[in-house]
Design a protein around this nucleic acid. Structure first.
Lengths: 367, 367
DNA sequence: TTGAAAGCGCTAACAG
DNA sequence: CTGTTAGCGCTTTCAA
């Protein structure tokens, strides 16, 4: 048999025996049934304005009748763009990122984009692996949070390959560094500074910082810098940060040691809410009352913090909005695919969203 | 020009001007560089055992030199299977599902499968929309949690189209109903029964159930049934369930009304931990102490519950494992693509994972 | 063990 | 407005 031009639809193709409605029905089948060409059928779905109303209707009818379901794979392969956005977050176990995902999913889906989510668990090695994975899927762009944006091989790679991406939570230097990186975050340092100043305004002088590993989070470092700013501005002693290994386990021993000291702090600034909730419990187990004996200020503004009693005092970030804006910015970059770098170079690369302080609750005057 | 058979690799193809390493390099380029055919190059990656060691090495070298990155789209389209698993969860804002995702991601990725996550927000309409979306992406199968597995158009559709899926959290009737649905969950009714019996053993007689909307969660209904079992078995009065609209807002008014009643309950069984944490706070705001004045038992065993003080007493589900097992079962079904229904019909469709009670903490004897 | 050839399902020039 | 045609990048018979 010569390489003959078969009819658009080969009836003898190895169709699976099982009759799965919608499965195996191709656009060609629909075109055949609607008595139009494959191209026209295609247009009905991708460029409806190019096809006459009546024709479109015939195609739609046929599609419905055959329960046609477009195979996005074919479209993507041919179109050389997947309309998939890769998302890499450290973990979903921290509500911050779960809330962020809500914003991401909502704005991506409503813009007709699909998502592929991976988590890095704050590990740079896993970041590389997961990003490579997203790249193999030919995502059109990425929204991600990396451990350390100022020293990230993954970001370097993305830059090198000119893959459009927008950072979420990671805050790139305002400007002047020449970095073309885009980010959406709050101003970590300034907001932390404000939070700690509120602690100082409440009368606290000995304030300690509890944080996760600095290596796993540039945000934690920036927030610590904000703490330093506030303390220095008030002539108060900057205490060495306490870096706790786990957010999700009791760190009672470390807390006990801190409080046993003659010069125990009267307030804690925790660089994230999850940590703050753990610290509050540890304090309670030590027989200390919050905020009567010790005040605790968190950072993140996860919904759960507002649910507990007393409510967690914290620096609130608009988590869902961070996700939504990151997608929005990425979409803008993807839209102007021509010369994106130049197009919005004037616009600030680092979008800073407003933060808020939620005080009261776990913050009160020193004992 | 006749429909001529061009060389495998067309040099005049519209390559984008931008030099993006790895982007645009195809298997054909690699084959050319390695001086083998496209077919051989392909085999090196998909069926290494079919190709001579030395040849494979040449191909690998060329691939590395050109920074070749396989385009999964081409492979998927041709292979007629995507190795993507669709995952639909109600929300990630409830830590139960975030924890479950961890198990899902880990076992899927390590099996070489990709994931596509969508959330339904407990809304059947959105369930349909999101599932259709996953289907268009031609996922090989799905792991999902639906609002109500016993009345789900989405599940009916999946059955009709013979799409392999495994339910997570939704617990299908043990057997006898003839349903071929697969599920991984704990035994909701039995575990709730045990939890409530523990409350009774602690001395409680008036126990109320606080739950989310029954329509949004068959688990909530099953857990309520477990409560009924426990109460009836002990000759205690079954109180009407209190269905709260939101997990993430204060429901203080409803709680106040309940407690104002002359016959206020001495213990609450909340059908999920998030709810329990909210209820505890509401109780505290009413000036009631937990567990001194009122006991609270949750359900889910989210990590956070163990962090608060006092620790949340609860029925613990192995969330990450539910996700991991759901993937494992799905993979088994996908593997034996031939006659899956018959192959493991003997095995229980409904995998019940062990639960555990975590007592103490917010549960004590009645006042 | 390797190569040639035929598509997977869809889109997008280019003609008509 | 519609049809013809040539692939997107990859896998997989079928032959050699």
């Amino acid at each position: 048999m010569p390489p003959s031009r078969r009819a658009a639809n080969s009836l003898q193709s190895p169709r699976l025996a099982s009759a799965e409605p919608g499965h195996g029905v191709t656009l060609a089948d629909v075109a055949l049934a609607a008595k139009v060409s494959l191209a026209t059928a295609s247009r009905v779905f991708s460029h409806p304005q190019l096809v006459r109303e009546a024709t479109a209707q015939r195609v739609h009818d046929a599609a419905r009748r055959l329960s046609f379901r477009p195979n996005l794979l074919g479209a993507k392969l041919r179109a050389q763009q997947t309309r998939i956005i890769g998302v890499m977050l450290p973990t979903l176990d921290n509500a911050v990122f779960a809330e962020c995902w809500r914003g991401i999913e909502e704005s991506a889906m409503s813009a007709g984009y699909s998502l592929m989510l991976v988590t890095s668990n704050y590990e740079p090695a896993r970041e590389r692996e997961r990003v490579e994975y997203l790249l193999r899927h030919r995502v059109d762009g990425m929204v991600l949070t990396v451990a350390d944006a100022s020293d990230s091989t993954v970001l370097d790679q993305l830059d090198r390959e000119a893959v459009p991406y927008v950072l979420a939570y990671n805050q790139v230097a305002a400007q002047g560094t020449g970095s073309q990186r885009h980010s959406v975050s709050v101003d970590n340092r300034t907001s932390a500074d404000e939070g700690v100043k509120a602690l100082i305004a409440a009368g606290h002088r000995r304030i300690a910082v509890i944080s996760g590993a600095f290596t796993a989070s540039d945000r934690a470092r920036q927030r610590f810098a904000g703490y330093e700013d506030a303390m220095r501005a008030n002539g108060l002693p900057v205490l060495a940060p306490v870096n706790l290994p786990s957010h999700t386990a009791s760190n009672a021993d470390q807390i006990r040691r801190l409080m046993a000291d003659g010069t125990a702090p009267t307030a804690f600034f925790c660089t994230n809410d999850l940590l703050a909730i753990g610290v509050i419990s540890d304090l309670k187990r030590l027989g200390l009352r919050v905020p009567a004996d010790v005040s605790v200020l968190g950072y993140d503004g996860i919904a759960l913090g507002g649910l507990v009693e007393p409510p967690l005092a914290t620096v609130v970030q608009p988590n869902a909005d961070i996700g939504a804006q990151a997608i929005a910015r990425l979409l803008r970059r993807l839209g102007s695919a021509g010369a994106p770098q130049l197009a919005d170079a004037a616009a600030s690369q680092a979008l800073l969203l407003p933060h808020a302080l939620r005080l009261g609750g776990t913050v009160g005057p020193p004992a």
